[in-house]
Structure formats: structure tokens, C-alpha cells
């Protein structure tokens, strides 16, 4: 599903000069596999997710998702790839505030196939337990509910790989559990591969495979600063 080889990511530093954040010789995820990624703050976990989603381009190396070599794609190609293959859930502020819950879910379909399936959008909301909140605006939803809408939206485009960046960090423990269950169960039932960044060992323990960034990245977080 995902194969990373000799990936190097450098950033231009604000003061000039380059900062190497990632140097990953090899990292793989199988189809429908679920992986928790833990690591120190500033280690480059978010950066790695952005690279896999094609929202950043690698400095060198190879990223293959579903047999597509991302590093060879143009920016438009990566946009198309992302719309078709990747689902993404952020830590916070996932939803567009101008749109209702169901419209946010539909946005997940708009940029992919372009075909909007209203029934499926409502169905997805129903699955995350928010059928009655379909027409609520994000600011009328609790943070946990917003995260559940974001999950519904990430699934809307029928992705092959779901990337989740600390989706439960801002949610109270009870809601966090239900959000987590939702992600894990949905991915399992739809055979979607899952890569989730988390700081919580409790969360990580729910996964069959746990990776520490320090083990796959040759650049230690501390050295960066």
C-alpha cells in the first residue's frame, strides 16, 4: 500500500540554510494495515503525513502509494491523487465553518470524483452518529462531534489510505474513545489502510502495529533545534 524508500525532507529555514527533518531509509504499510505512529514533538510526524498525502514534495527519495510514485507527479497530479486515494483527519479545525455538517462531508466528494452522492453523505453522518446534526454548522457542534464529521468526510471520497494526525488530542477521554473506535472500525470494515499519529500510549495500544518515528527516521528530534 505504502512504500517509502530513502526519503529525505529538508526545509528552508527562516534565517537561511536548510534543516533536514526526515531521513527515512525504509517504511512500509500493507493494504488495510493499521499503524500508530508515535514520537517526540517536532520530530517530523506531521511532515511525514503531509509528504504521504502529496501536500509537500520530498527533497529526495521515493514515496509509493497504491503503486503510484508521488515524487514523479506534478502538483496537479498530486491533487488528483490525494482526492482519489487519501483521507485526512487533522487535530483541530477540520471543518469549513461556512458549510453545514453534511455539506462538509459532500466537500470530501466534490474534489475527488466531482460527483456528489447526497445519500451516501447522510449515510456517513448516520454512521458517525450525527444524522440529526446534518444541517448544523461547525460552530454549533462540539469538538468531538466536529471530529466525527471530519472522519465521515475523510471516508466520503472512498480513500485507500486514511491519515490521521492526533485526531483525539483535543477531545475529552470519553469522546476520544468513540472517535477512535469509529476510525479503527470504519477502516477495518472498508479495508482502508490507516496511519495515525498520536502522543497517547493508550491510543497507540489499540493498534496491532506501533512505530516510533525515532526508529524509522535517522534524524533525532533534539538535534534539529
Amino acid at each position: 500500500m505504502l512504500t517509502i524508500e530513502n526519503l529525505i525532507k529538508k526545509f528552508q529555514q527562516p534565517g537561511g540554510g536548510e534543516l533536514t527533518v526526515l531521513d527515512v531509509p525504509k517504511f512500509e504499510i500493507a493494504s488495510a494495515e493499521q499503524v500508530a505512529l508515535i514520537g517526540e514533538s517536532g520530530g517530523g510526524k506531521t511532515t511525514l503525513l503531509h509528504l504521504i498525502a502529496g501536500m509537500l514534495s520530498a527533497t529526495s527519495g521515493s514515496i509509493r502509494v497504491d503503486n503510484i510514485e508521488l515524487t514523479r507527479l506534478s502538483e496537479q497530479g498530486r491533487d488528483r491523487f490525494r482526492a482519489a486515494t487519501i483521507g485526512y483527519v487533522f487535530q483541530t479545525f477540520n471543518l469549513l465553518p461556512a458549510f453545514s455538517a453534511v455539506e462538509n462531508v459532500k466537500l470530501g466528494m466534490t474534489f475527488g470524483s466531482g460527483r456528489v452522492d447526497s445519500e451516501r453523505a447522510l449515510d456517513l453522518l448516520d454512521r458517525v452518529g450525527l444524522a440529526e446534526r446534518a444541517n448544523y454548522r461547525p460552530n454549533q457542534l462540539s469538538v468531538g462531534q466536529q471530529q466525527r464529521v471530519a472522519i465521515a468526510r475523510a471516508l466520503a471520497g472512498r480513500p485507500k489510505l486514511l491519515l490521521a494526525d492526533e485526531p483525539t488530542a483535543n477531545v475529552d477521554p470519553a469522546s476520544a474513545d468513540s472517535v477512535l473506535d469509529l476510525i479503527i472500525d470504519s477502516c477495518r470494515s472498508e479495508s482502508i489502510a490507516l496511519l495515525m499519529v498520536t502522543h497517547s500510549m493508550d491510543v497507540a495500544d489499540r493498534f496491532e502495529r506501533i512505530e516510533r518515528l525515532e526508529d524509522i527516521n535517522r534524524i533525532p528530534a533534539l538535534k534539529q533545534s
Binding site: 498525502a53 501536500m55 502538483e75 496537479q76 491533487d79 488528483r80 490525494r82 482526492a83 482519489a84 487519501i86 485526512y88 487533522f90 479545525f93 477540520n94 471543518l95 469549513l96 465553518p97 461556512a98 466537500l107 470530501g108 466534490t110 474534489f111 475527488g112 468526510r153 471520497g157
Partner: peptide, 14 residues
């Protein structure tokens, strides 16, 4: 800016 980035993350082109 954030909205735009979110849309881009959903696959919207520039």
C-alpha cells in the same frame, strides 16, 4: 488560509 488548505487537503487544485 486554513479553509483553503483544508480544501486543498481534500484534493482541491490551486
Amino acid at each position: 488560509r486554513r479553509d483553503i488548505a483544508v480544501m486543498r487537503a481534500l484534493g482541491a487544485r490551486r
